[in-house]
Design a protein around this nucleic acid. Structure first.
Length: 666
DNA sequence: GTAGGGTTAG
């Protein structure tokens, strides 16, 4: 039997491949099927599918006068890759003739859809197929392994006629994914032969199970046994990264030093047990993650063959250290900066507040990708240039870039910052279309809606989250109720949260105290403050004190409030004094108001608010001499009279007009 | 055209 050379050695059951070049029954003669045009057409289809142009591929496929099994299989691959199993199945059923690959493709498609229903479908095909090759068995085994069904995986493994290295590797990965370290190691030691993936699979699986030292032991053994040399570096690199991720940098370095290092040039690679570029890069990365930029740089300077990775790791290290001088100096020396290098600079400059520089790099970079857009938009948002963020978001859509969870999260924060319900709702729609059940995004939606006053809508989202709520969801919802004066709802939700054993954080208590403040619940506020400390061991922060001062002060117990301020273990901030001043205003305590106002003036000399408030109080009490001592500018006096400041209109470009914002003095 | 795996940015 003649077989295309090169395939033979990979396929123990290669004889099933016979139908490879036979034409299908509806097609013309087989001699014609072998001409150059035909191959070109098949090649074109597979190219279209590789590049994701499935619709075009299908058009070509439908137009083809003759097809062979490869044509059909290519088309099926396209649907399988997109998990469109119904379409794949339809083609599969229509095929005039199938080979092993057709069956294997379908099985692997069903398997990667996950879910038991799909596995059963794959298994049923596996059982029906006339001849199975190595790939069929391995697909099925790894399918079971990936879905935590090791019993069935093992059954197939035992029944399998000619096991390959892949079968063993799949079993090892499967055991490790199920936390079965013992069987994984046992299988690894029993393997008749290993390839470059075997050690990698074992080591990375052991790392996932937290068995780093066990992995290190096995590696040392393999090194001593002169065994598995080909991929030993590979495995060492994996383990170095594992130690690094767990902050065990010194152990990572010990492993790095264990790898032999030759000074010969151009001999690096996986074929010899010897440090390669990845080893260096990984070690540098460990230092960067640990914040040890000096050691990272030392290694970087020692390297002979730096690649893009090395440069980018180093640049991102400086970015994390907010050292933009070094970051940009490296960038300018880098031979071929890629998108990642540019993005790191954009990120770094926005991080330190240099939006113009960040934007310069953003405009100058030759090939923007999604991360570039996201970094720039997030940069605007973090620096509170909300309008800049919205403009860029609009431009992004005009230029056809699709937003993802990161984009949407930034723009949602922007909507919240602008209190722009219209924009927020647009983003909400996009979230529904592009992301499935993302907890942080849902949390941001809750915050956005409640900040915009749509507390009902916020609650709808909160409700829909069901079991996937985290503390932040609870905090957002309780905080939303609190800030809108729904104290009963806030406290009820807080009670429910505790019943469900969700541990509150200091933020939860800010919201709870805030709710009490709004509703004038003095005793409730006091007892919540106490329970925070005693039941949950949360140290009160300045925000909690400010809230409690507000609660007590507004109730008229100004002296007690003042006492609380004096008892604070840290300096009161403007919120604390502001709360006291507000309470003094309500209860007409001019003497204490003066103390609070003066403290505020020291903390924020540029703010006119305490002056205005004190002025009004003096005026009400007809203390004209005191009032005269407060020097107000004309503008401030007008404010004192009207009690309102108006901000000019502004526009969110390309999307909508925002309404006038009025800020009222309390 | 199918089965198993090392390092960088939001």
């Amino acid at each position: 039997m003649s077989m295309p050379l090169g395939r033979l050695c990979l396929r123990p059951h290669a004889s099933v491949q016979l139908s490879r070049f036979t034409s299908t029954s509806t097609d013309k003669s087989s001699t014609q099927a072998l001409d150059g045009d035909f191959f070109a057409l098949n090649k074109r289809i597979s190219h279209l599918i590789r590049t994701g142009q499935i619709a075009q591929a299908r058009e070509d496929f439908d137009r083809m006068e003759q097809r062979n099994v490869v044509t059909w299989n290519s088309m099926i691959t396209g649907y399988v890759k997109r998990r469109e199993m119904a379409k794949a199945r339809k083609l599969f059923d229509e095929m005039p003739e199938r080979d092993v690959v057709s069956w294997n493709l379908m099985i692997s498609g069903y398997i990667s859809c996950r879910g038991d229903r799909y596995i059963e479908e794959g298994r049923s095909l596996f059982d029906q197929m006339p001849v199975r090759d190595c790939v069929s068995w391995n697909t099925m085994i790894s399918g079971y392994a990936k879905n935590q069904r090791m019993t069935e995986a093992l059954q197939l493994f035992n029944r399998m006629p000619n096991r390959s290295v892949v079968s063993w590797n799949a079993m090892i990965t499967g055991f490790l994914q199920n936390g079965d370290v013992v069987h994984a190691i046992e299988f690894f030691e029993r393997m008749p032969e290993r390839d470059r993936a075997s050690l990698s699979a074992l080591v990375s699986g052991l790392i996932q199970n937290g068995e780093l030292d066990e992995a290190a032991r096995i590696l040392l053994e393999c090194g001593n046994r002169d065994d598995g040399r080909e991929d030993l570096v590979h495995a060492y690199n994996t383990l170095i990264a594992g130690y690094g991720q767990r902050g065990r940098v010194e152990e990572a370095r010990k492993l790095f030093d264990q790898i032999p290092f030759s000074h010969e040039k151009g001999k690096e690679g996986n074929r010899r047990f010897e440090r390669n570029v990845v080893s260096w890069n990984t070690m540098i990365m460990c230092y960067v993650k640990a914040g040890n930029i000096v050691s990272a740089r030392e290694l970087f300077d020692q390297m002979r063959e730096r690649d893009t990775f090395s440069w980018n790791t180093m640049i991102s290290g400086y970015v994390h250290a907010s050292d933009m001088e070094e970051a940009s100096s490296l960038f300018s020396k880098m031979p071929n900066p890629d998108a990642l290098s540019w993005n790191s600079l954009i990120l770094g400059y926005s991080q330190v507040g240099c939006l113009e520089l960040a934007h310069d790099f953003f405009e100058k970079m030759p090939q923007k990708n999604l991360v570039s857009w996201n970094s720039m938009i997030a940069g605007y948002e973090k620096n509170e240039d909300f309008v800049g963020a919205v403009k860029l978001f609009a431009r992004m859509q005009i230029e056809g870039e699709k937003p993802d969870r990161h984009t949407l999260s930034s723009v949602l924060s922007v909507s919240t910052g602008l209190v722009d319900l219209h924009l927020g709702m647009q983003v909400h729609q996009m979230v529904t279309k592009t992301v499935i059940a993302d907890v942080p995004l849902n949390n941001s939606l809750i915050t956005m809606y409640s900040r915009c006053g749509e507390i009902k809508q916020a609650h709808t989202i909160f409700d829909k989250m069901k079991l996937q709520k985290d503390v932040i969801s609870w905090n957002a919802m309780i905080g939303g109720y609190a800030s809108h004066g729904f104290a009963a709802e806030a406290l009820e939700l807080f009670a429910l949260m505790k019943r469900l054993k969700v541990r509150p954080t200091y933020i939860t208590f800010i919201a709870v105290l805030n709710a009490c403040a709004h509703a004038g619940l003095v005793d409730e506020g006091r007892s919540q403050f106490k329970s925070m400390i005693r039941e949950f061991g949360i140290e009160p922060r300045v925000e909690h004190y400010a809230s409690l001062v507000d609660i007590i002060g507004r109730h008229g117990q100004l002296e007690e409030a003042m006492g609380l301020i004096k008892s604070m273990p840290f300096e009161p901030d403007k919120a604390v004094w502001g709360a006291l001043l507000g309470a003094c205003r309500v209860h007409n305590n001019v003497a204490l108001a003066r103390v609070a106002a003066e403290a505020l003036m020291r903390l924020e000399p540029e703010s006119s608010a305490p002056y205005v408030l004190l002025y009004n109080m003096y005026a009400d009490a007809e203390l004209w001499d005191d009032a005269a001592e407060i020097k107000l500018g004309d503008a401030d006096r007008q404010q004192a009279d009207s009690n309102e400041i108006a901000r000019p209109d502004f526009q969110c470009l390309g999307l909508k007009k925002c309404s006038r914002v009025i800020i009222k003095y309390q």
